[in-house]
Each structure stands twice: as C-alpha cells, then as structure tokens.
Amino acid sequence: MLEIKGLEVKLEEEDKQILKGVDLTIEPGTVHAIMGPNGSGKSTLSYVLSGKDGYEVTGGSATLDGEDLLDMDPEERAALGLFLAFQYPVEIPGVGNMTFLRTAVNAQRKARGEEELSAADFLKEVREKAKSLKIDAEMLKRPVNVGFSGGEKKRNEILQMAMLEPKMCILDETDSGLDVDAMKLVADGVNALRSEGRSFLVITHYQRLLDHIKPDIVHIMANGRIIKSGGPELALEVENNGYADILSEVA
C-alpha cells in the first residue's frame, strides 16, 4: 500500500535536514505505529506524505499503491485515499463543519469519477457517524473546529476520516489531549474502519492508545530515521524504559 524508500527531506526556507532516509513499507490491512522522541520528524513525515508546503524532498520516494505521491497536489493524494488526522487540527472560521465535510466528500467523489452524495444520504451518514463519536448536532453546525476543545477537535478528525473512507490513514498523535473515555471512542472509531484494504499509520507517544488499536508493527523514529522496528512489545519497552536503551543500542 504505502511504500517509502530512503526519504530525505529538508526545510525549504533553511538548510535544515529533518528526514534523513526513512524506509517504511505498509501492507494493506495492517496497522503500523511510530513512536519516537519529540522533534524526531514524525509529523514532518506525515506532512510530507500529505503534501504540505515548506518542505523539500532531497532524496528517496513515496508511493501509494504504486503511484508517486510526492508529485501530486494534496487534493490528489486525498482523492487517491490518503488521509492525515492532524496533530493540531486547524480552525476555519466562517466555514461550517457540515459544509466542509460535504465539500470534501463530494470533491473526492468527483475526482474519482463517482457520483456526488445526495444531501439526504450525506446527512444520514454524518449523523450516524457523529453519533458514534459522541459529536452532537450543535458541533456539526459550528465553524470547523472553532471553539472546539482539544478532544473535540481530535474526534472531529476521526469523523472526517470515517466520512472520507480513505485507504491509508495517518493519525498524528490523535490520542494527545483525549480523556480516557474519548480515547476509547476514537479507538473504537478507528477499529470500526479496520478492513483488509485499509491501513493505518498511528503516530503516538503512549502505549495506551495501542492497547485499543493493536498495531501489527511498531517503529521507533529518532533523528529523522526509523532506527528500530518490531512487534507490539516494542511499544511496551518504550513505555517502561523510555528511548535511552534503544538509542544507545543502535548508536
């Protein structure tokens, strides 16, 4: 599904190398987790994959189902099935959450040559999905993320993911700022979407989320590289001992 080879990325504005050769292959239907110290490049990887400005790819490649992601506009990547749940979801005053969702769903359908969702079908689907994430109707009417609490913003990201039904979902610290119950809701939302054709890349600092969303493979990222990969037990090791052992092990 997602194949990243030797990806090197620097900031466009300054001479700062952030990703220094990332290799990562995600098979369809699998859940991968990335952990790693602050500033190691996890969010940068997710931004570069989704096409944010400000980064320059200096080497390597990234493909989704064989198609070169790095050459595409962000909207093309989305239409191809890539989704990023932002570490810091963006507030958009003046654009209603419903309008936003419907515009996004229909834009992707249009890009894929599918028919637009009727207003009634759309409404029905949003209501159902919002309900299971405990997002109330009033929140759907408000402008995108404006005045939402941290946890509400994260749940709203998962709602967007549920509506867009992407095949490659990247979740950047979706657990941060969530209370215990909300974390369960979000995990249930993610688990409900798990399927053979859909993969997840879950970026997190904590084992707790991974208790709910069981990863197949856990990667440790440090200083712009994936330095170690293993099974779910790797996350437990980090939880118990921090990164010091792993870092010195590979040094």
């Binding site: 096409g51 962000p74 909207e75 989305a78 239409a79 958009i92 936003f100 890009a111």
Partner: peptide
C-alpha cells in the same frame, strides 16, 4: 486552512473560494 481543506480533497481553487 488552505492546506487543511486540500488535504481533505478539496481542490486548490475551490478551497480558496470557500
């Protein structure tokens, strides 16, 4: 905000107009 909209699949011009 523009990138956020585009990352959800809304084309650049449509996102800008919104």
């Amino acid at each position: 905000a523009l990138f956020y909209l585009r990352s959800r699949g809304v084309p650049h011009d449509e996102a800008r107009n919104l």
